[in-house]
Structures are given as structure tokens and as C-alpha cells.
């Protein structure tokens, strides 16, 4: 791996135990991207049919297949970049393929912890943990956890947040 390709989070001083997301997350997100693309394909099929006649839907279908396969590849690689690490004082979350993002949330500043699960996530039995601080617009998400892992994480975060409460 060339130095330029090293993700920014690998430069963090000290050892971090990165926890991966559930392997099911890839399926969820790939499925979600397929569904989103499907709506796009349907929307594109209408003008194509008017323009090309019966060939229109075929073109839409072909475009859909190509885009969906490309998208699944990209999504699969993106999912691999997600990870979280719990340290003594803070929670680290990393993600992003093109734009790398590393968020560090101190336990003492956590205001609110949400568990949520969308319909596709529920099909695969996954849960998303959202952590909010007093800074607006800084919701940190940890998506795609197995429900027991998610509620355990939530409980640990809540306990630590109550222990080291630092306020605004």
C-alpha cells in the first residue's frame, strides 16, 4: 500500500481496536442501492419508451444492470471502510471511500443515543446507533450492528456518558 493510499485513520497514534460492522451490512446497502437505482431506471424508461418504442425498456434494463453492478462494487468497498473503536474516553468512528472521515466523540459530551432500524435493515436484523452531541449537525452514526451488539454499545455509551458528564 502506497503511503498516499493509507487511510487517515491508520495514522492515529497508539493502537486502536477497530470493530467491523456486521457482514450483513453489505447486503443491506447493496440492496438499498439496487432499489434506489430501480426507481431511477423506471423513471428513465418512460421517456426512453416514448423515444425508442419497445426498445426503450430494454435500454433502461441494460443501463440498470450496468449501473447496479458498478454501484454494488463501490458500495461493497465503502462498507469495508466503516469501523468503530471504543477507547477509554471517546468513541471513534471511521468511514468513507473517496472522502475519508474520522469522528471522535467523547463520552462526556454525548447528549442523546438513538437506535434505529429501517425496513431493509430489519429484514436482515440490523440496527443503527446514532450518537448526538450538543453541536448541531454532528450526528455520528454507527450503522449495521447486530441488535445485541447495538444495545450493548448503547448501554456502554450511556453508562460512560453518565459517569463522565462534561456538559456543554
Amino acid at each position: 500500500m502506497s503511503p498516499k493510499a493509507t487511510p487517515v485513520w491508520d495514522l492515529w497514534p497508539g493502537d486502536l481496536q477497530w470493530q467491523p460492522m456486521s457482514p450483513q451490512l453489505r447486503k443491506v446497502w447493496v440492496l438499498r442501492s439496487w432499489i434506489n437505482l430501480f426507481f431511477l431506471a423506471v423513471a428513465a424508461a418512460v421517456p426512453l419508451t416514448i423515444w425508442l418504442g419497445w426498445e426503450g425498456p430494454l435500454w433502461a434494463l441494460g443501463g440498470y444492470a450496468v449501473l447496479a453492478s458498478l454501484r454494488s462494487w463501490a458500495v461493497a468497498r465503502t462498507v469495508a471502510t466503516w469501523g468503530y473503536a471504543e477507547r477509554d474516553e471517546d468513541l471513534l468512528v471511521r468511514h468513507g471511500l473517496l472522502t475519508r472521515r474520522l469522528s471522535i466523540v467523547p463520552y462526556g459530551r454525548i447528549q442523546l443515543i438513538d437506535l434505529s432500524a429501517g425496513p431493509i435493515e430489519r429484514m436482515f436484523g440490523l440496527t443503527t446507533v446514532q450518537v448526538r452531541t450538543a453541536a448541531l449537525g454532528s450526528t455520528t452514526e454507527v450503522p449495521g450492528l447486530d441488535p445485541p451488539v447495538a444495545s450493548a454499545l448503547r448501554d456502554r455509551l450511556a453508562v460512560r456518558a453518565a459517569e463522565v458528564r462534561e456538559g456543554l
Binding site: 487517515v8 485513520w9 468513507g96 473517496l98 472522502t99 475519508r100 472521515r101 474520522l102 469522528s103 471522535i104 466523540v105 467523547p106 459530551r109 452531541t133 450538543a134 453541536a135 454532528s138 455520528t140 456543554l168
Partner: peptide, 11 residues
Amino acid sequence: RIQSVKVTQGR
């Protein structure tokens, strides 16, 4: 007063 810290790196 620092709430959380983020590091981002674009393309």
C-alpha cells in the same frame, strides 16, 4: 468547550 473532533480527507 470542544464537543467532538472530526478529521476529513477529500479526494
